[in-house]
Each structure stands twice: as structure tokens, then as C-alpha cells.
Design a protein around this nucleic acid. Structure first.
Lengths: 258, 258
DNA sequence: TTTTTCAATTGAACGCCGTTCAATTGATGG
DNA sequence: CCATCAATTGAACGGCGTTCAATTGAAAAA
């Protein structure tokens, strides 16, 4: 009937009793082990049974400690990774700079656990408790920039959606990427691009090589989209600053006609 | 040994033989049925066995017609949905307008099948054959705007990543969203936002109501991010136009130091 | 017509998964 | 010394993706 998930908060409360007092498996340890496994073996290879196997423990233990279902474990993982995201921000910097810092910190945090990226995107939407700090920080920066009402909403959504979405897509696992088979398939397709039908795509290949977003591949090595992310961030923040400076002349969105 | 997936191309070739000539299940029909099921019952409730059940057929049939694995079926689904995405575009319009049309068309196409959205994000990255038209169109518009080299790559990545990422996040399934339980949970959390700790989040709630990205919820009805998407699109295209006009003074990204 | 071929389908099987639950363990508080 | 109960166990249930040796029956070959 009862479970550790009921009593145990984020931190250990009382010294536990029972046989497990000696073994002492914790909710935090389970989440940590899950993150380690996903980092090491990928999200699709992750299962609760494999997690339990890695911990040398019965699968049921996971349920007793975490409670609920696999989805709840994912929520806990997302909360752990995105926790304390706002710390790396200087509250005295101008609002544009604060935004830049916050989103660069977000990208860095997600890049520390690329395989978990698919979870974060979905979780950022409703994971209220752990992302309120984050939301408030972004709203604060935009409010300092003069945005309010509909313009604030749209600026907020554009930033969160565009930038978090970029990172999500950037790290999205390429389909059919097993044992290097994917790389060779992409290589074949590159060679097969018809210069007549797709002149620009074809022409861009030699110089841009494999740096184009769609082709996350470079001699078998990972490709960083750092510069493209910075370009997007700069594009957005500059645009917002422009509109914040002259809110009357250039409205971010037309006044709502409802 | 052999399978329909080997011989059958995108279109039906020869009239088939054997008993199934009467029944006549097609690869296209299977993909269509899969899309219908995902539209109706959601992606997480979709399985190959359920698909076969709905078609009144053995699960093995799916493998014979589609070939490979579930992942290949997903690829076929993505290709079907994003196919013919460029048609809605006027090749004589200015490049900024063309970009706007193309990405609005992308969003519209994805919104027609919201449950399939998670597949498209990953698939757009390497689904070469069916997305080459799309890539070429975006590259063409940017090239017409004067972008080339590193600036072209970053502009391309920023657009694709930001806008497709926005749509992916916009439609990402909210976790714990079963039987309306999620809505009530969000409502509780809204009421529980501490006005002292999160003044802006709290203050934004009454006016912005539930239009904020994170809170995809409005009296049980779906919320549209149409306006926020348009704001993001405008922000990006305006910014690119600005940089295209004065490429020397404002570079999209620093010259590569490699 | 009879026979052969083979596209298309079947049903059973394998191993893994998420999840539940009645039992069990054993340190601790009384 | 005993009763409690946090913590763990192992077995079980149904569903999943995937494979494969068999089967069907219309069309091609004889």
C-alpha cells in the first residue's frame, strides 16, 4: 500500500529501517543510475528492467521508490537535469544579455545529456514546479525589455519554442543510426543528389560539407551546431531589442482583434 | 526471402498475383491506415499488432509489405505527410515571402497530424529523398537573399531548427495527459504559483491566461500558438532581411577561424 | 488441362517489456 | 523478546516487436 515515493521528498528525511537500511537504495540514486544508463546506452535501449538489472535489484524496487510509472521516472530525470538552470545568470546584466546567458545555459545543460533531450522538450511544458524559476527569469528579462500583454506572450513563446526547439531538433536521434550503417547511407545519398534537380543543395555540399542541419555527420564524428545556435539566438534577441526600443512603430504582433 | 518492399516502389507497378490479388493490401494502404490510427488513438497507443488488428490481418503482413522494422514504417509515414510540401509556394514572390509561405505550409502540414509530430522532427534530419525539394527551396530563397558560405549554413540551420523545433515543441504531448487528469493538475499548479516568489509568472496568468507556451490548456480546449509562431517567423525573416541588406556591416556569424 | 511458380498470408513462437502483488526479510522501537 | 513495517523479492499477466516455416491460390508454363 505505502511506498517510499509517498514519504520521501527531494531530500532524505529520517534514517530508514528494515533490511534495506543496510543496502539503502534511494530515489535519488535510482534517478542518477537511470541518467547514467541513458547517457551510456541511449534512450531507446533503456528499460526499467535493465535499470533494475544494473542496480542488482528486482524491477519492483523501482516502482516502490519512484512510484507511479515509467513516465514519472522520466519526469524526475528531467527535473534533475534542468534543476538549477538559472544559477549561471547575472541578474545585473542588461535584459538582452540575461536572455543570452539563460538560453546558452539551457543548451549546455541539455548537451551534457544528449540522449535525454527528447524527454526535456515535452517535460518543459508542464513540469511546473521545477521550471517556474526558469519561466520567471525569462519573463523578467522580457518585462525589463518593455514587453507586456500579447507582445510578452508572443516573445516568450517565440524564444522558448524556437530555442528549446532548436536544441531538441539538433540532438534528435537520427533514424536508422545503428552500427554506422546510417552514416554510409547518408554518404550514398549525398553522392546521389542530382545536380540538375537540386543545384543549390548540390553546390552547398562541398563547402558547407556536412555542417548543414539536416546532415549531422562528418567523417563519423559528431557535428556541433554551436554557431548556428548562436546565430539564431542573436537573430531573436536583436529582433526583440529592436521592437522593444520602438514598440509603437514595429509591433511584434498586430493588436488582437478579439 | 523476398518481400513486397523490395519490388514495390512508391507507385503500384504490375498487377499482383496469388491469393492476395483479390484482397490486395498495399504498402500505401498500410501507411495510410497507420496514419489514421495514430491520428485517432495517439502515437503511444500505436503498435504494429494493433495496426494489423485494425486491418484484419496478421502482424507479419506489415513486415512483408513495409519491410525492415517499425522505424521504417515511421519513415514512410513521415515521408507521406511531408511530401509535396513545396507546392503551396509562389516561386515569383520575393525570397522573404517565399520563406514565410514554405514554413507556414510546413506548420499546417504537421498540424493536420498533430500526434505524428514527434516523428517528423527526427525524420526531417536524414529523410533525404523526400525532403530534398524542401531543402532546396529554403536554400534557394536564402541564396536569393544573398546568403552564402557560413552565413548560408547558419541562416538555414537557424530557420529549420527554430521553426521546425517550435512546431515540434508546440505539439509535443504533455506528459501525464490522460483522461483530463492533466488539465486539473495544471489548474492546481496554476493556483499554487507563489506570487512572492514568481511575481511575473503570477501576474501574467490572468491576462495571458493559458496562452503561455508552457500551459497548453484552456478550459479543456486546445490552444493555438498560431500568433506566436507568426511572431517567431517574422522575427527571423526580418532579421535575415536586415542582414542580407547590409552583409558587410552586420555579419550573421563571425568569419570562421579554421 | 494439368502442373509449376511464387506473391501474399498465416499462426505459432521467442524474448523483452511495463506493471502488479502476495509473500518475505530483518533492523528497529517498544 | 516481540511486533512493526520499510524494503525487497520472485512470480505472474498481458502486450509488444520480430522471425519463420508452413500454407494458400491465382496466374504463368507445360
Amino acid at each position: 500500500m505505502s511506498s517510499a515515493a509517498d514519504k520521501q521528498g527531494t531530500f532524505v528525511a529520517k534514517p530508514p529501517r528494515g533490511r534495506a537500511a543496510a543496502i539503502g537504495l534511494t530515489r535519488a540514486q535510482i534517478v542518477e543510475a537511470a541518467i547514467a544508463q541513458i547517457d551510456a546506452r541511449g534512450l531507446s535501449a533503456f528499460s526499467l528492467r535493465e535499470l533494475a538489472r544494473g542496480l542488482g535489484v528486482s524491477p519492483a524496487v523501482i516502482y516502490w521508490h519512484v512510484g507511479g510509472s515509467k513516465e514519472d521516472l522520466f519526469a524526475a530525470i528531467a527535473a534533475t537535469i534542468t534543476g538549477g538552470l538559472v544559477a549561471a545568470q547575472d541578474p545585473n546584466a542588461p535584459w538582452t544579455e540575461r536572455l543570452s546567458q539563460v538560453f546558452h545555459a539551457y543548451r549546455a545543460a541539455v548537451h551534457r545529456h544528449p540522449n535525454i533531450s527528447p524527454l526535456l522538450g515535452a517535460q518543459m511544458k508542464s513540469n511546473g514546479n521545477s521550471s517556474l524559476d526558469w519561466i520567471e527569469t525569462v519573463l523578467r528579462a522580457l518585462a525589463d525589455g518593455g514587453f507586456q500583454g500579447t507582445a510578452l506572450r508572443d516573445a516568450f513563446n517565440a524564444l522558448i519554442g524556437g530555442l528549446c526547439g532548436f536544441v531538441t531538433m539538433e540532438l534528435a536521434p537520427a533514424p536508422l543510426s545503428e552500427d554506422g550503417a546510417w552514416e554510409s547511407r547518408v554518404a550514398e545519398r549525398l553522392a546521389a543528389v542530382d545536380p540538375e534537380a537540386y543545384p543549390l543543395t548540390h553546390a552547398a555540399l562541398p563547402q558547407l560539407a556536412n555542417r548543414i542541419f539536416v546532415l549531422r555527420w562528418q567523417n563519423g564524428a559528431e557535428v556541433s551546431y554551436e554557431e548556428s545556435f548562436s546565430a539564431l539566438l542573436e537573430l531573436l534577441i536583436d529582433g526583440l531589442a529592436l521592437r522593444a526600443a520602438r514598440p509603437a512603430t514595429i509591433a511584434l504582433s498586430e493588436p488582437s482583434h478579439g
